[in-house]
């Protein structure tokens, strides 16, 4: 997740724009453009190889989006066009629609490829440099500052949460004489416990925010934090944007020209 330290402080606008353009071009491909999607993935895998990320690793990272395919499952069985199969399984009468299957498979591939595109973005640019790039692209200062600080304190607070959970687990014993792990107390007691954990973490975060503010104030900051110095603007940005347009064109044309299934 953490990028090459050399990339910190570089203008990440080109990387951000490329990623968004690539994901958009992929999203615009019509259902059934499997060949064009494979081409898009090959482009991605090539870029990954240039950055030292193997295609296998990239492909595995893409799997995180797959569970969402549940959302597209009903369409496979509920459309009645291009029936591939119809029949009964026990009491259920089922039909599999070719059109529905195509929509679901295309969505799945697009999700899988798009996740890998954002994995590459992170390999190319550090999270703070992405925030800086977005700031340059007119992201309001309040959001940029808040996002920067969220990224800064994310791991610290997640670590606190992890330690609190571990301490709760350590005290989560089963009744005497019962070996296996069981959950005790009533549902509302457990909800109160979880709520108390959330509340405790809030108070810890709140006092941390006050310490951060005091530290900022003691260094002369007033109200809001400055984003820090921006890295030098990418002098070849225009050129790169043309490259991006070319990329979009390739993907879109391949979607139009390559046969669909």
């Amino acid at each position: 997740m953490i990028a090459d330290p050399r990339s910190i402080g570089r203008d990440a606008r080109a990387a951000v724009v490329t990623t968004i353009a690539f994901v958009t071009a992929v999203a615009l491909l019509p259902p059934g453009s499997y060949l064009a999607l494979i081409l898009a993935w090959l482009l991605l895998a090539f870029a990954g190889a240039l950055l030292g990320i193997g295609p296998g690793h990239l492909a595995r990272r893409g799997l995180v989006a797959l569970p969402f395919v549940v959302a597209a499952v009903p369409i496979v069985f509920l459309r009645s066009d291009e029936l591939l199969w119809a029949g009964t399984i026990g009491p259920l009468s089922l039909q599999v629609s070719g059109a529905g299957l195509r929509i679901a498979l295309t969505a799945l591939m697009k999700a899988w490829i798009s996740v890998q595109a954002s994995v590459l973005l992170l390999a190319l640019a550090s999270p703070p440099s992405i925030v800086t790039a977005l700031r340059r692209m007119r992201l309001p200062a309040v959001i940029a500052t808040s996002a920067g600080l969220t990224i800064r304190y994310l791991e610290i607070l997640r670590d606190e949460a992890r330690r609190m959970l571990r301490a709760r687990t350590a005290r989560s014993a089963s009744p005497v004489g019962d070996g296996r792990e069981r959950i005790g107390g009533t549902i509302s007691w457990r909800a109160r416990t979880t709520g108390s954990l959330v509340g405790s973490l809030f108070l810890r975060a709140y006092s941390r925010a006050q310490r951060v503010e005091d530290a900022a104030a003691s260094r002369g900051a007033t109200g809001s934090l400055s984003i820090g110095t921006m890295p030098a603007a990418d002098s070849r940005l225009t050129l790169k944007v043309f490259g991006v347009l070319l990329l979009v064109l390739i993907i879109t044309l391949s979607g139009a020209l390559l046969p669909r299934l």
Binding site: M164, A167, A170, R171, A173, S174, S200
Partner: peptide, 20 residues
């Protein structure tokens, strides 16, 4: 595991992790 947790009491370094 359920009995082990009753037999072994862990006191963590930061009491704030434990007290919620």
């Amino acid at each position: 595991i359920g009995r082990v947790r009753a037999e072994v009491g862990l006191v963590f370094q930061d009491p704030d992790d434990q007290l919620f």
